Computed example of a mutant assay.
Amino acid sequence: MDRVKVLFVDDETMVLNSIKRSVLDEDYSALFAVSGEKALEIMESEEISVLVTDMKMPNMNGLELLKKVKEISPDTIRIVLSGYTQLPQVLATVNSAGIFKFITKPWNDDEEFLPAIREALEYYNLKKESDQLKEKIEKKNIMYQNMLNYSNDILKNIKVDVNNIKTINRLIFNLQKNLLNKIKNNQIDINLVDYYVDLINSIYFDFLDTIPSKNEKFNLEQLAKSLKIDIISDSQVKFDKSDFEYEGNYSLIITITKTLLKELLNHCNENDFEIIIDKFDPLNISINFDKENFHEVLAKSLELKLIIMILNELSNTFGAKFSINIKDKLICLNTNLRSETNKN
């Protein structure tokens, strides 16, 4: 561990030599300067714990030096060693420069001079330890506050997830109840019941896989790449401005869109539609059909209607919804996500 440093300043060489002899056996490193300017040069490269300076010096006097040291190194303990004995002068110096001790010349080494420096060093060390402890406490307080905020965010998110699961559970229950009623009334082919139940459960469990929900940052290129994996070809996805960045429930957006695409491929060829990801705010994912019988595809497919209804409910959990435009042959997932670029 480096020894603490005490800087002595006096324009009289004889005084400095006397101090050197006095502090020879002390447990600190003693540095010496013959002027205020030299003292400031030393302080640029050294951490000075205690400064002991004469008051009456040419060019820069002791008071000027003390004021500068208070400004550039406020933790340095300042002691005056001077022949000034008039009370007004002493008080002026103490008040303007924050003096720890005022020692008059001539002094007694063992009774006054050395004890004063030791006391100053002890005060410096105590203050430094206090500041370090305070800094540690402040850092811990920040850490604990961050942990508390994080825990509160988790609890808030869990509450939202629980409410969303309850909402989706009600939907699934009602769908299954409706299927049961249709079976009782012979309104549905019983051979298709297992298929519909499996379809509903598959979507439901895919939704549960996105729990716990979390917001993620993503750009359009990342979104397009995720949609292309194992489902559609590169040519089917169109997007612009890949540097546009959004933040939202990315995993659920992907789950919802992929589920819809997989079902569409059961009723259409791959080349019958394309995905258009709009960079406009809010973010929209549109499925644009080339098929002339787009209306018939939607009207005849009970599975597709069922899936869109369930997905629309899932989308509502993060403020999105599906819209179907028969005239323009579009199925569109309208999100409420605005780009980070426009937010800034």
Score class of each variant (00 low, 15 high):
N146M: 14
N146K: 15
N146H: 12
M147T: 10
L148K: 14
N149K: 15
Y150W: 11
Y150M: 13
Y150F: 13
Y150D: 14
Y150G: 09
S151A: 15
S151K: 14
S151G: 10
N152M: 09
N152Y: 13
N152Q: 12
D153C: 07
I154E: 11
I154R: 10
L155M: 15
K156L: 12
K156E: 12
N157D: 11
N157L: 11
I158E: 10
I158V: 12
K159C: 05
V160H: 11
D161G: 05
N163V: 08
I165M: 14
I165Y: 14
I165G: 09
I165W: 11
K166P: 03
K166C: 07
K166A: 08
T167M: 14
T167P: 05
I168Q: 11
N169G: 06
R170N: 15
R170S: 15
R170D: 14
L171G: 06
L171R: 09
L171V: 13
I172S: 09
N174D: 11
N174S: 07
L175G: 03
L175V: 01
L175S: 00
Q176W: 02
Q176E: 11
K177L: 04
K177E: 05
N178E: 02
L179G: 01
L180K: 03
K182A: 01
K182Q: 06
I183Q: 02
I183G: 00
K184C: 07
K184T: 07
K184F: 10
K184E: 06
N185W: 04
N185E: 12
N185R: 12
N186P: 04
N186K: 14
Q187F: 04
Q187N: 08
I188N: 00
I188P: 01
D189H: 00
D189V: 00
I190P: 00
N191K: 10
L192R: 04
V193L: 01
V193T: 02
D194S: 07
Y195I: 06
Y196V: 00
V197A: 05
V197F: 05
D198S: 12
L199G: 04
L199C: 04
I200K: 03
I200C: 04
N201G: 08
I203M: 10
Y204Q: 13
Y204C: 09
Y204T: 12
F205D: 13
D206G: 13
D206M: 07
D206V: 06
F207D: 13
F207P: 12
L208T: 14
T210C: 14
T210W: 08
T210P: 05
I211V: 15
I211G: 08
P212V: 08
K214T: 05
K214L: 05
E216Y: 01
E216N: 02
F218L: 02
F218C: 02
N219A: 03
L220K: 02
E221M: 08
E221G: 11
E221C: 09
E221V: 10
Q222W: 05
L223W: 01
A224S: 14
A224M: 03
A224G: 15
A224P: 07
K225V: 07
K228R: 15
K228F: 04
I229S: 07
D230K: 10
I231Y: 04
I231C: 03
I232V: 10
I232Y: 03
